[in-house]
Design a protein around this nucleic acid. Structure first.
Lengths: 347, 347
DNA sequence: CTGAAAGCGCTAACAC
DNA sequence: GTGTTAGCGCTTTCAG
């Protein structure tokens, strides 16, 4: 039985017949402490017998620095994304001996302020401020009192540390998946909603086209609401373009596109190759055929945020961009055009 | 500028020319403390000038009880579910003045032990031990040292507090959605994987059939792997049954079923009504047509866990079942049979 | 090799 | 009304 009030270090000392400081030394395995094997044993026994647990709070009080890192999120459950950020942050924090204190604010700034206050009062080492979709953000005043880094968002002002996904590089990889398969007429269905992702993913598309020696044709860029319904509705316009491949703003859009395509007897990837963006597991890995896409590295965003906070990474820029790796599945097929210009015969 | 070392209560006292206890009294707004308006003002000013933040850790040390609740999860990012549990728990904990300390264990029992140890050392008020899918679980030894409640899982032994979804009630509601629409030949595609959900959802199906005066026909229950591929593959067998409606073990299965149905020209809900289970937003709300289903109340599971831990709820049974509410969308249509026995003409 | 003493920031009696 | 004192559980010089 564990006693109601947990045993203290002092009690262990008494039980072992030594002083508190001796117990402290053996508990913390101080290298330079010379404790006789005999004493050490007696202390260990007492610890076991009493079921002693060090009090991390008291430890913090004397050492002055706590082992907490706060994570404030604007929407923990709305998407799987926030979960991944928490996951990445938690693992990395843990690795360095820190525990994560989390708060969900639903974007409510009062809650946000309270959450940050709570963290400050618990003397967190620092705070990760995260958003579920990549965007610019205001910095709550209270946050400035802490050592903080922005995750999946960034500030308008300069010099504020942040970690965000590299949308342009991702868009480029997505497009390249298609170009490498020989496609030359590649449509892009962008989002209707303004966001860093909208601009970045388009920029990446253009960059890949450029590199591939393909002209950018504005007519090939459509816009749709970034979900299944948007993708579904975009089908007629897309089909009118005569493209052999399409790169969608996100996986949800691609999933809706699949439905519309199937209804019209257009097969993927036989008649049309498709790539998405986000790598939203539940969707991308399980539609028919499995969707090739580019991953939004939320875990890594969280982990990088922690490293930045702890000063383990010291990048040149205050805003660090994390790569979005392509994940190839089965929605891209080679087109004949590929055989028109085989690598070796090029020129 | 915030000083490197935050101001302490003692410094505030000196700055205000009062004693520490006076400051303590005004900070904590003690009702029965008689502090002159003048003193109160001086203290407040000093607090503001020094940017004073109470140290919650020191407070905890003296009061003996911390304001932390630990949440250990076996898979934060694998599914959206864990995120919802965290969300529900966090909100409820917050409401009662507690902060959530979270740990992700990936089911690794060493990590699990470390996580629990860390929480114990931080003197958490209690621990919520959660799993991402509903199942029986072992209780890690260390956990017994804390006040704990199981969330989305339960122990084999008696008397251990736990909160789980009411699978049978959910299965019953799902089936009733179909029965109420007049269906009389209702197939059920269960999971191939043993789990409380498998048994519960089947039991609910049978109960609903019973209540509806329909005979249970074992031939109408199929089994498939509980994901999109499983649902897709089950289509031929399902179609051979001649059912007018089908209840799927989960939404992912239903989504795969949609694909297979569409390929064969079977329309939902025109030719076949479909209901799922889980209410996995990204899928259920956005397939075509939107899927009627039954929600797995993960948020509520987390919240109920907190209330149980805090002793705010005191149920009769140690295992509390949380209701799975039906969410109707557009995948169920009335069948002619409904008009054969209109409610009023019944008997 | 080990113990005594001071103090981390705060609260709670109890004085005055 | 407000100050004094004594710890909460622990670490850390500094003696011995």
């Amino acid at each position: 039985m564990t006693p109601a009030r947990p045993a203290t270090l002092r009690e262990v000392a008494e039980a072992a017949g030594v002083s508190p400081s001796t117990v402290s030394l053996v508990v913390n395995k101080k290298k330079d402490a010379r404790i006789s094997a005999e004493t050490r044993r007696r202390v260990r026994d007492a610890i076991r017998d009493l079921g002693y647990r060090p009090n991390a709070l008291a430890k913090t009080l004397v050492s002055g620095s706590s082992r907490f890192i706060g994570l404030v999120a604007d929407a923990i459950a709305t998407t799987p994304f926030a979960g991944q950020i928490i996951h990445g942050a938690q693992d990395e924090a843990w690795k360095h001996g820190y525990a994560l204190l989390i708060a969900n604010t639903e974007g409510n700034s009062d809650l946000e302020k309270d959450a940050i206050t709570m963290m400050l009062e618990h003397k967190v080492r620092g705070i990760l401020y995260s958003t579920w979709f990549h965007r610019v953000t205001e910095i709550p005043e209270a946050l400035r009192e802490a050592d903080f880094v922005l995750v999946n968002c960034f500030a308008a002002e300069d010099g504020v540390r942040a970690v965000v996904p590299d949308e342009a590089q991702g868009g480029r990889e997505a497009t390249e998946l298609l170009i490498r398969a020989g496609h030359r007429r590649i449509a892009f269905i962008n989002a209707t909603i303004p966001a860093p992702a909208k601009d970045g993913r388009l920029a990446g598309y253009r960059a890949a086209l450029d590199d591939g020696g393909l002209a950018f044709d504005p007519a090939l860029v459509l816009e749709a609401y970034p979900d299944q319904e948007g993708g579904y509705d975009a089908v007629p316009a897309l089909l009118a373009l005569g493209a052999t491949a399409v790169y969608c703003y996100n996986d949800r859009m691609a999933a809706g596109l699949y439905d519309g395509l199937r209804e019209r007897g257009v097969s993927v990837p036989g008649d049309l190759s498709v790539v998405g963006f986000d790598n939203q597991e539940v969707i991308a890995a399980h539609v028919r055929p499995p969707l090739s896409t580019v991953a939004l590295p939320h875990d890594e965003l969280g982990a990088a945020g922690i490293r930045l906070l702890l000063g383990l990474d010291s990048p040149e820029e205050s805003i660090v961009k994390v790569e979005c790796p392509p994940v190839e599945r089965a929605s891209v097929a080679a087109t004949d055009a590929a055989f028109t210009t085989p690598p070796d015969a090029a020129r």
